[in-house]
Design a protein around this nucleic acid. Structure first.
Lengths: 221, 221
DNA sequence: TGTGACAATATTGTTCACAATCAGATCCAT
DNA sequence: ATGGATCTGATTGTGAACAATATTGTCACA
């Protein structure tokens, strides 16, 4: 069970929340796992009060579920909700892609093209980890380039909720072969400074992600 | 200064948070106003611990701003951010409108048309309050009919942040004359079960809202 | 009159002890 | 054995006391 996320002692509630969030993200804390305040306090070297506040924060974010007098647990996001989240992400990331296409500088275009090239060679080399990294980089770069901070914050929060489903995706055989052209299409549209096309490409890509999640979930469960 | 929001004593943190949120929404608490824990505790009949937790919650939601050792205050949302919020809402409500168009039953269509008729007569009668209510009802009905709970929750949170700017809008002369046809177009598209058209109509409507906010803000400040 | 240091006050941050509550174990009567 | 009542240990909820920090007010001095 992992040698623990001991890390440096977290002094305030936000720091504890960050650590717990990271642990969930890393798969150290799995859905439905109980989160006992005293345990977390010891684990992160914080007081119970801080842990309590952190759990409250994570509850608002939707990462953690709390029941009166019965404590907190990692929320298990049902498939339906995961699909909803992808839908919402599609709407928001499409917006970001469009904005990015509008504001793109030549240097930024080069960065995007470089990411695209990296992803291409990752697929050729069959390097799943590199492809996954390129995927993350592409999405977060586009969000950053959009300058839309509200959308960025919202997407972050949503992504934190659906972690569980992200895993399965890259494990799916042939997944990268399907999604690579989608990613390249997004890059092309943004670099061509065509907001509408960029939005459409992003929406289509995330719809395909949604479909893949659905398939992999129904086969796995 | 309003005879206070004494209301029934709030027993848990969430209840206190709800009351504070409502007070902000009602304009009793204005941006930048200090929120002293002890005062709020007495006002809502809760312990300081509850108030503290409530403020933490509202901070995560973005309604309240906290500075270390200097307490909490109602966050003042700058114009730029308000426009961002409208942009994000446009993306999300467009999604909802499209989904609603897909799932609409005949009874629901009647409800929408009734709301549209009410808004029309409100404008004719020059009844701003009725028009504002119709507006709220239309938006929230479409969100509900979409069945997209994730989007619904996200929109709610965003709307809570930008309250300050909603006020000014209905005060603006001629505003309802401009937005009425936009609203009716949305209703028509949804009732015609045309998702794309519904999304477009909603997007256009909210873009016009954004523009109106921009104008009214630049003239007011 | 203005400015800086210092003291007084107000407010938030943190911890701890105790009360309230729940899940599961145990026991007893049937 | 089974069903229900009761007990027990674990865990969370609550409030109050104390510590840390910022803000305001005061006063001496230039």
């Amino acid at each position: 069970m992992a040698t623990a996320t001991r890390a440096s002692a977290a002094v305030n509630a936000t720091a504890v929340a960050d650590q717990i969030r990271a642990a969930i993200f890393a798969g150290e804390l799995v859905p439905n796992q109980r989160l006992v305040e005293a345990d977390l306090a010891e684990m992160y070297g914080a007081s119970r009060g801080h842990v309590r506040a952190a759990l409250a924060e994570l509850t608002v974010e939707g990462v953690v579920e709390r029941i009166q007098n019965r404590g907190a647990r990692v929320r298990s996001v049902p498939l339906e909700e995961a699909l909803e989240i992808v839908e919402v992400r599609a709407a928001l990331e499409a917006l970001c892609a469009a904005r990015a296409a509008n504001r793109l500088t030549d240097e930024e275009a080069l960065v995007l093209r470089r990411i695209g090239a990296d992803m291409e060679s990752a697929v050729e080399a069959g390097d799943q980890a590199a492809y996954a990294q390129g995927n993350t980089e592409l999405h977060s770069t586009l969000i950053r380039l959009s300058g839309q901070q509200t959308a960025a914050a919202t997407i972050d929060r949503l992504r934190a909720q659906a972690v569980r489903f992200q895993y399965r995706l890259f494990a799916k055989p042939g997944r990268s072969q399907q999604s690579l052209p989608e990613h390249l299409a997004i890059i092309e549209a943004v670099c061509a400074r065509e907001p509408q096309a960029a939005a459409r490409a992003m929406r289509e890509h995330l719809m395909s992600v949604g479909q893949a999640i659905e398939e992999s979930a129904s086969s796995a469960v």
